[in-house]
Nucleic acid binder design. Structure first.
Length: 304
DNA sequence: ACGAAATGTCTAA
DNA sequence: TAGACCTTTCGTT
């Protein structure tokens, strides 16, 4: 369940755990054996994220590189709908158990941050596509949509097809986003999920950020004012950066007291997965429908 | 046991 | 628009 914030977080975690080292790369499942062989023995360098794409360079020498440089081989991972990384290791190896899908798998609590000296790598599940390993810990990747070794030129070609990433929010991105939306008649809710328009937002940020700025998701892109699209971009930047910081999505702006009876599951989001429940802002029941193959949630009362 | 759904994307028709 | 793909969990028989 990885939207862009998860991938940025992973880039940070894997950089911290493996950059500067020469991890053993294996494919317990066997479907990445060739790639694993190519990467083994090389120095892992700091990883990059752009939208939902993860890139980690593996080089013969430890000199720093930029995203898409020629020279290193690039590990490229797209988690898709349910890919995830799991971590386990000794006390020198600190990471969250699982990043990606909200599940715990290998290396659950008992082997994480465990006792200092006696750590042994756990047996991988038979679905583990890639394992990165060094003496203090392992990272296992399961269920990715894409996992491959690329050249710098391949990487540049992927990145060139991606729109601006709200988590990066580079100069000019705000204007780029608003102009990409305003030149099309497609519903704005569909454009927010188009990775060539904005790289990183998924179904939750789409639904909830549109709600937060009051835009109806079915409004055609060319009929949303420049000003409102600017506010939408700004809100994506804020919400997704909070996701990177916190490690989870918390898009409902309302605060609850610990004793509040509101359903725990219901508190987290604004409209996402809240069909039929009252809008936090106006009380109208939240609606849902399918749009271009994805479930869409919005409040018919206060989004226009 | 079985089916559906899940924070995604691609391809074919 | 439908189906394929990568995997797990959760609800229903």
């Amino acid at each position: 369940m990885p939207e862009g914030h998860t991938v940025h977080r992973l880039a940070g975690a894997l950089t911290e755990l493996f950059s500067g080292q020469r991890p053993a790369v294996t494919s317990p499942q066997g479907r990445f054996s060739q790639g694993a062989e190519r990467l083994t023995g090389r120095v892992a360098l700091p990883a990059h994220a752009w939208g939902k794409h993860f890139f980690m360079p593996f080089s013969h020498d430890p000199a720093p590189v930029s995203l898409g440089d020629d020279g290193p081989d690039w590990l490229h991972v797209h988690l898709g709908l349910y890919g995830s990384w799991s971590f386990a290791g000794d006390r020198h190896f600190v990471a969250e158990d699982t990043i990606g899908a909200p599940r715990r798998r290998i290396g659950e609590r008992e082997s994480l941050g465990g006792v200092s000296d006696e750590w042994e790598p756990p047996e991988p599940r038979d679905t583990v596509r890639v394992r990165l390993a060094h003496e203090h810990g392992i990272a296992d990747l399961t269920g990715p949509n894409q996992c491959q070794v690329l050249t710098g030129s391949d990487v540049r070609s992927i990145v060139s097809r991606l729109g601006p990433d709200p988590i990066r929010n580079d100069p000019g991105d705000r204007e780029r986003f608003t102009s990409l939306v305003r030149r099309r008649r497609v519903p704005v809710g569909q454009l927010v999920l188009d990775q060539a328009v904005a790289a990183g937002p998924g179904n939750i940020y789409r639904a909830d950020c549109l709600w937060r700025v009051g835009i109806h998701p079915l409004r055609p892109g060319n009929r949303v004012s420049e000003a409102r699209l600017g506010l939408l971009w700004d809100d994506l930047v804020v919400a997704m950066r909070e996701g990177v910081r916190d490690g989870f999505i918390q898009t409902n702006p309302l605060e609850f007291s610990p004793s509040d009876p509101a359903d725990e599951n219901d508190r987290r989001f604004a409209v996402y997965h809240r069909t039929g429940r009252p809008c936090w802002r106006c009380g109208t029941p939240v609606a849902d429908s399918m749009l271009a193959g994805r479930r869409l949630f919005w409040c018919p009362g206060c989004q226009h």
